[in-house]
Amino acid sequence: MSLAMTSPTRTGRGVLYLALALCALVAIFPVLYMGMISLQPAEQAMSDAGMLLPASPASAASDGAANYGSVLTDGTVNFPLYFRNTLVIALLSVTGVVVSSVIVAYGFARVSWRGRQCCFIVMLATMMIPFPVVMVPLFVIFRSLGWIGTFLPLWVPAWFGSAFSIFLLRQFYMTIPRELDDAARLDGCGHMGILLRILVPLSLPALLVVALLHFMFVWNDFLGPLVFLTHRDQYTLALGLELYMSRLGTTPWNLLMAASTIMVAPVLLLFLLAQRSFIEGISTSGTKG
């Protein structure tokens, strides 16, 4: 807006829309491509003659049904089961992150205490630690707990808060006027009362963002399940997709793209439904830090 031309000409607007359409198309192209390939028969998807578009809507429907049916009923890679596994981990993990971050962010936003600033900076610094660095020791810790080969390593840590979610919520709490707290206090509310009656109801959009971001993180996580899960029946979708891919030799790209679509669809749907909160939430993290 700030760089808007003072009097946009006709050609100016034409160029603008052309650029917008081009960027949007290029950005969305991989997704469309994936969808298109997943609706084609193997011979078309794998041959030079293969076009972007399926031969006809009717063929797309029947080939699509065949491809998705084949993926969902695969004897080796049990996608419905992996879908469920991923959901179980995601739900447990998201609930944990929301509950713990709501509490911890309160401690950082509304209780003033010596050392708060210091702790907050340390917490922000932990976002810099790459997972591969702690991967090996975490493996040992979880092994000594007997957690390797279970879902526990993938969701229990979430119940102790994630730095990014805490940071985001704290930023949001800060925007809620303190006078509301004081009023509640006069009504006899303690910290817990203020949190549950004032802050949580007012920060629902932020909670939604925290939940969605964490859901996507869990849904997309590859290295964690790769290292901590051992049994094929526990695989998540990300691992299932890799298992499916590893059948080199006769890589069935149309089926692979159908499998990718199955993995991508839930996140994409969630994003579309919540895109406004989502984009706002992300921008909060960057500008008001």
Binding site: N220, F222, L237, L268
Partner: peptide, 9 residues
Amino acid sequence: APSVLPLVA
């Protein structure tokens, strides 16, 4: 949109 896709996919 492509940014929300799983990196594996």
